[in-house]
C-alpha cells in the first residue's frame, strides 16, 4: 500500500472527448439534484397536470378545443417553482461550497461546466413539461372517440405540444443558470426566478391597462410563450382570449430568444470575462 510510483508520461493518455465530459457531469448532477424536494415538486406537478387534463377531458372533445393552452399555462407556474429550487442549488451552491474549484481544477473547461449545468437543469425541467404533456396527450387520444377527423386534429397537436415544452425548458433553463451563477447565496437566485417570471406580469398588467396598449403585455414572458405557441405552432385557443394573444409570433419569439441570449451573455461574462468566480 502506498502512493504508486510515477508511471505517467505527459500527454500519452487518451484525450477525453468534450461530449463525454459533459455527459458525465450531467449524469452526476442529475443524480444529486433529484432530492426529496425536487421529487415533491415533480409529483405535485404531475398531479395537477392530470387534474387539469381530467377537468378538460370531461368536457366534450377537448382536443378540438383549447384544453392544452390552460395545461401549458399551469406548467409555466410549476416550472417556476422547480426553477427556483434548481437556481438555489445548481451553481450557487458550488460557489458557496467552493466545489466549483473541484470542477475547474480538473480537465474540464468552463464552457463544459456551464453547458453541463444547463443540460442538467433542462433534464429536470423536462421531467415536468415534455413528459406530462405527452402522457396527457396519449391518455386523451386513447380515451376519446376515434374518428378520422379526430386523428388529423390530434396529429396536428403534437408539434405545438413538443415545441412549446422545448421552448419553455430552454427559456427557464437559461434564466435559471444565469441567476444561479450570479450569487453564492441561493435564496437570491430563487427570488430572482420569481422576479424574472412574475414581475413582468405586474408591469404588463399596469402599463398595458393604463395605456391600453397590447404590446406592453410582451413584458410578461408567459405572454410571449403563448403568442409563439398559438401563432407559430398553431395551437387553438378560445375566441374569448385576450387580444394580445394575437400579436405576431415573431414578437414573442424575439423576446424569448432575447432573454436566452441575454442569460448566456451574463453567464459568459461571469465565467470567462471575469475569473473572479474562483478567485
Amino acid at each position: 500500500m502506498g502512493i504508486s510510483p510515477l508511471t505517467y508520461t505527459p500527454w500519452s493518455g487518451t484525450r477525453m472527448g468534450r461530449l463525454k465530459n459533459v455527459l458525465r457531469i450531467v449524469f452526476e448532477e442529475a443524480k444529486i439534484r433529484v432530492t426529496v424536494w425536487s421529487l415533491i415538486i415533480i409529483l405535485i406537478t404531475y398531479l395537477l397536470v392530470y387534474i387539469n387534463a381530467f377537468y378538460q377531458a370531461v368536457r366534450p372533445a377537448p382536443i378540438e378545443k383549447y384544453g392544452y393552452v390552460s395545461t401549458i399555462g399551469n406548467l409555466y407556474l410549476y416550472m417556476m417553482l422547480l426553477s427556483a429550487y434548481l437556481a438555489f442549488n445548481i451553481i450557487s451552491r458550488d460557489l458557496k461550497n467552493g466545489s466549483i474549484i473541484l470542477y475547474l481544477s480538473r480537465p474540464i473547461t468552463r464552457i463544459e461546466y456551464i453547458v453541463s449545468k444547463f443540460l442538467a437543469v433542462c433534464f429536470h425541467l423536462s421531467l415536468i413539461t415534455i413528459v406530462p404533456l405527452l402522457l396527457v396527450y396519449i391518455i386523451d387520444i386513447a380515451s376519446l372517440p376515434q374518428s378520422s377527423k379526430f386523428i388529423t386534429e390530434a396529429s396536428k397537436l403534437l408539434l405545438p405540444l413538443i415545441g412549446s415544452a422545448l421552448l419553455m425548458v430552454i427559456l427557464f433553463g437559461s434564466v435559471t443558470i444565469m441567476l444561479s451563477s450570479l450569487t453564492k447565496d441561493g435564496k437570491w437566485a430563487s427570488a430572482g426566478v420569481f422576479g424574472v417570471f412574475l414581475i413582468g406580469g405586474f408591469i404588463a398588467e399596469i402599463v398595458g391597462s393604463a395605456l391600453n396598449n397590447n404590446y406592453a403585455y410582451l413584458f410578461y414572458l408567459w405572454n410571449s410563450v403563448i403568442i409563439v405557441v398559438i401563432n407559430m405552432f398553431g395551437m387553438r385557443i378560445s375566441p374569448r382570449s385576450p387580444p394580445w394573444y394575437h400579436l405576431p409570433w415573431y414578437y414573442g419569439l424575439s423576446i424569448i430568444i432575447g432573454a436566452i441570449v441575454l442569460s448566456f451573455s451574463v453567464v459568459y461574462w461571469r465565467f470567462l470575462r471575469r475569473e473572479g468566480i474562483v478567485a
Partner: peptide
C-alpha cells in the same frame, strides 16, 4: 510542464490541487 496553464484542460490531467479553501459537497 512546458504548457500555458490558462484554458488548458489537458494540463490539468497531470496536476493535482489541494486548494486553500474547502471544496466539498458537505
Amino acid at each position: 510542464a512546458g504548457e500555458k496553464p490558462w484554458n488548458n484542460p489537458k494540463l490539468r490531467k497531470i496536476l493535482g490541487y489541494v486548494p486553500e479553501r474547502d471544496i466539498f459537497f458537505p
